[in-house]
Design a protein around this nucleic acid. Structure first.
Lengths: 343, 343
DNA sequence: TTTCAAAATGCAAGCCTTTACATTTCTGTT
DNA sequence: AACAGAAATGTAAAGGCTTGCATTTTGAAA
């Protein structure tokens, strides 16, 4: 570290280029409003000084940040990572910057992050799922920061959302599974507290059971966090229970892959002895062996659409139009008919 | 959208609580400097108004943001996602917020993102790999923003870094592979442009070949981007080439898993006909079937250490101490002896 | 040349918070 | 009851940028 020079400001640049600060500012923001000669002159000064505009000052003066915040449960699950990448790419195209924060599925941290992003001047927010303290929605309203909910589309919800109907999607899958003769079902779910998606998936399976004449309360339910190993452990527990399920639904592909691995380690043939069904259809699902039967979610599309909607809202005030995307079952190798030797 | 109320400011809160703005500010930043009664009074006003401090103004006034930026190539590869999660968690513990940006491996975008994060007032930056336009380092210096390089540890580099020696790690692995009788080697690499890690890995394999008496220019080299499918395509190409390699190194596990999948699709037994070696050891590697032989990189540890170093630097001015972590080969199922029926 | 609209530039207020310093209010002593 | 010192609070400047409005410059037409 050499001597601590103060970082150059607009003022310094203006002085170096012998123009006013207004001109420098315009040179940066509306280049075609300033004469060619001046522009070059200013550009040189900027480079010489290594000037970079101060975001805080800029945000304050312009009352606009061109920043959109995204708050997701975790970066470790590819499903969010991928959707976000698409979100960011599209946002860039519209001249916006994305700010991400993750919550580890903890509502308190989420609230903290929402406040933090709002304080940072996010012009709008991308949120995952509907369920959260109403207090937060009130806060966002007071701050005038619009929020778009994704990864979920609950018919009839009043908040704008771009997503899919978790319940309907899993219902469709569960119905197929039952048709294959499975009666003893289990679900390894992500934590359901404050997670409307997980709850909807749970409900969807039970509805399918009811509609097929099965007793929904017979669904074996077990919660796991989101690592592969958690899925493995949950699966093991399930296999040691009194009545072994013949089909195991998993709240997401990560858990499913964990279950699959443990099945292999326990020498339980899949799908001969037990079928495993995932949710999300991340790349992992195709790579797994045997390839995972799962519910395909159009993450990228979702991210892209969300970006467009938000960009239009912030730039032109176009209200967000709710969009329901389709999530459909993808049948691969981990689902088969129920084994008939049912004790 | 209702009437566009201006968002409440410190002023409004002060008015509502009948105190000065200074008191409100202190109430927020140094609660114990203000009387209990006043504090409660102010708190209530804050809640009533849904006030949230303006980050820009705050940063400007305090000349400190408690924010550390991280710039990674992509969120889609679990290796970065995981390291970052650890980085963020540790940062939180020290009272810092993380800002992430991704570059899609494009140097221009990286430069843009660096400038953007600096402008946003990042107190310090986390960067991946050493290689970049010297101009950028000069800019960072001019701005007084320290940067820490991770994911790479090049012995003798003058910039502080916390990482591992990519070349040495792959050298060790390659040496083992050659010992198993493999002479015809191939490398499916991530793009090497401006990617010192990819280049180091390439070099490391060639060094091992040279030291084992093999001709390093016989290494078949093919570049791929970072999706699973890209790895698959590259593998297919390799298998159709004149001299089929008996061992295929991959620049990372994602590519390796793609190669593995394509091998299965092409009915090429692994490792009997061809061995496949990854790099990173993300969870994918253990889930793959057969389980992937790869080089284990301590991402989490790296992220954690980087966070600690940076936090200490910003808070106390403690200079960063370079740390070399060990990345070691992990032998699983995709590596076997070379098939003897050469050609 | 002169004239005038258009283009380029400059001036200065305002955005919201922190903080050094000044002032007022308490508290416990004497 | 008076007072010193501590605690609580207030005042106002500073921080870097944008932008409406005013002023100057430019260049083409007369």
């Amino acid at each position: 570290m050499t001597v601590k020079r103060p970082t150059p400001t607009l003022h310094d640049v203006a002085a170096a280029a012998s123009v006013s600060t207004a001109t420098v500012s315009r040179c940066l923001n509306f280049p075609d409003q300033v004469a060619e000669r001046t522009r070059l002159n200013v550009k040189r000064a900027i480079n010489d000084l290594g000037y970079s505009p101060n975001f805080g000052a800029k945000a304050m003066a312009a009352r606009r940040t061109n920043t959109i915040g995204a708050i997701i449960p975790t970066m470790e699950n590819a499903i969010f990572a991928r959707g976000l990448q698409a979100f960011q790419d599209e946002l860039r195209r519209h001249g916006f910057t994305m700010l991400v924060a993750s919550t580890s599925y903890c509502p308190d941290i989420e609230e903290e992050q929402i406040r933090s992003l709002v304080a940072r001047g996010a012009d709008a927010l991308l949120l995952i799922g509907h369920e959260r303290d109403p207090e937060i929605y009130r806060f966002l309203e007071a701050q005038g920061v619009p929020a778009l909910v994704t990864w979920a589309f609950t018919p009839g919800s009043k908040r704008p959302s771009i997503g899919f109907d978790n319940m309907a999607a899993i219902y469709e899958m569960a119905t197929e599974v039952i048709k294959l003769g499975h009666h003893q079902l289990a679900l390894i779910s992500a934590e359901t507290a404050m997670n409307d998606r997980a709850m909807a998936r749970h409900q969807g399976i039970q509805n399918a059971m009811t509609d097929a004449g099965l007793n929904p309360s017979a669904l074996q339910f077990i919660e796991a966090t989101y690592a592969i190993e958690d899925g493995a452990k949950a699966f093991e527990k399930l296999m040691q229970s009194q009545v072994r399920p013949t089909a195991v639904f998993c709240g997401n592909d990560v858990l499913a892959v964990g279950a699959l691995r443990r099945a292999r380690e326990m020498n339980i043939p899949v799908p001969d002895d037990v079928s495993i069904i995932g949710f999300d259809d991340i790349e992992l699902a195709q790579v797994a062996y045997p390839a995972l039967t799962t519910v395909h979610v159009p993450h990228r599309e979702m991210g892209r659409r969300a970006a467009i909607a938000l960009a239009n809202l912030v730039k032109n005030g176009t209200p967000i139009e709710a969009v329901e995307l389709k999530a459909r079952p993808v049948f691969r190798e981990t689902l088969g008919p129920a084994r008939t030797t049912s004790l």
